[in-house]
């Protein structure tokens, strides 16, 4: 079943800029430009792109906050802009950088408001609350005022709030932004569970690890257009993305020679080796450890912006 359908959806903004002392020039910016895609019920889709690519505008149209300038849009069978209030009961939204929780009140109070605003039946509420408390480890946090929670705790609180009413779709805007490694892992684990239980998830992120661990499908948007739609391996292949092995040697030396990797930078005893993202790091690490006085090493994942930039370069070049 198609849960989200976009058919040539566009969204333009009129921007006024100063031109001379009194005159203002108006020009149109296309934030989303003829976007078409569908998402089936139960999918987990990563929606990525550089800043200003149109991700937030798309999410705002999908929630009914913004009306599309052109095109047809359906979420769970309804037109979001026309039936915003009715749709709000069937979707959950989490903005990583803006909480919907009540700052000065215990987390429990925000949940209690959700129960009444979303008209959640008592039995279902109790069951969902229990599930969220267990999966998100909220037990000790329920009676703490939200302003006293850490960023990671608050994000877990926000996730719980977005799911109490059993939404069919969960939109997440940068759910792991600013979180430490442990909190990120917890959030991802929870999202996996939620998706496995049947909730459709659409998430925007700058962290490719989120995609790698959660999403079977990636959509890349740039300048308001869909430039890639497929799985992560396909994205890496299209973007010829590379991971980076950062090697710290015991002392400065000549560039390392390792099969399948090339040195891209040398700074004193530290060297950076690039290798294709889909290739395992293990043989390279073994080769380096075998032949060089190794002190420390780490692997860096490709950055979304680079992948997309290379994808363009590839498209232009070949």
């Amino acid at each position: 079943m198609e849960l989200i359908e976009l058919d040539r959806v566009s969204r333009t903004f009129t921007v006024r800029s100063k031109a001379g002392r009194l005159r203002r020039r108006r020009h149109e910016v296309r934030a989303v430009d003829g976007l078409s895609f569908t998402v089936r019920a139960g999918e987990c889709v990563g929606y990525i792109g550089p800043n200003g690519a149109g991700k937030s505008t798309t999410i705002k149209m999908l929630t009914g906050i913004l009306v599309p300038s052109a095109g047809r849009l359906r979420v769970a069978g309804v037109d979001p802009a026309r039936e915003r209030v009715a749709l709000a009961r069937r979707i959950g939204v989490v903005f990583g950088q803006r909480t919907t929780l009540w700052w000065d009140l215990p987390l429990r109070d925000s949940y209690e408001l959700a129960r009444r605003l979303y008209r959640i039946e008592p039995a279902r509420y109790a069951a969902n609350l229990e599930r969220c408390v267990e999966l998100l480890q909220l037990g000790d946090l329920l009676d703490t005022p939200v302003r006293q929670l850490s960023l990671g705790q608050r994000m877990r609180g926000d996730l719980g709030a977005a799911l109490l009413h059993d939404p069919q779709v969960l939109y997440l805007d940068e759910p792991t932004i600013g979180l430490d490694v442990l909190s990120k892992a917890r959030v991802r684990e929870f999202l996996r569970e939620v998706n496995a239980a049947g909730t459709t998830v659409l998430l925007t992120t700058h962290d490719l690890t989120d995609i790698e661990q959660l999403c079977g499908r990636v959509m890349v948007i740039d300048h308001g257009r869909l430039v890639f739609d497929g799985d992560l391996a396909g994205l890496h292949a299209a973007g010829r993305s590379e991971r980076t092995l950062v090697v710290d040697l015991a002392r400065p030396g000549p560039p390392i020679e390792a099969p399948g990797a090339r040195v891209v930078k040398v700074a004193g005893a530290r060297q950076w080796l690039a290798f294709p993202a889909e290739q395992s790091a293990a043989p390279i690490v073994a080769a380096v450890a075998d032949r060089y006085p190794l002190q420390d090493l780490s692997v860096r994942e490709p950055v979304i912006e680079d992948v997309i930039a290379r994808m363009y370069a590839g498209a232009v070049g070949g």
Binding site: A88, R98, T100, L117
Partner: peptide, 13 residues
Amino acid sequence: TGALDTLLLRPAP
């Protein structure tokens, strides 16, 4: 500040 968008996410007028 964009706070209105957050209010528009609630199932209420």
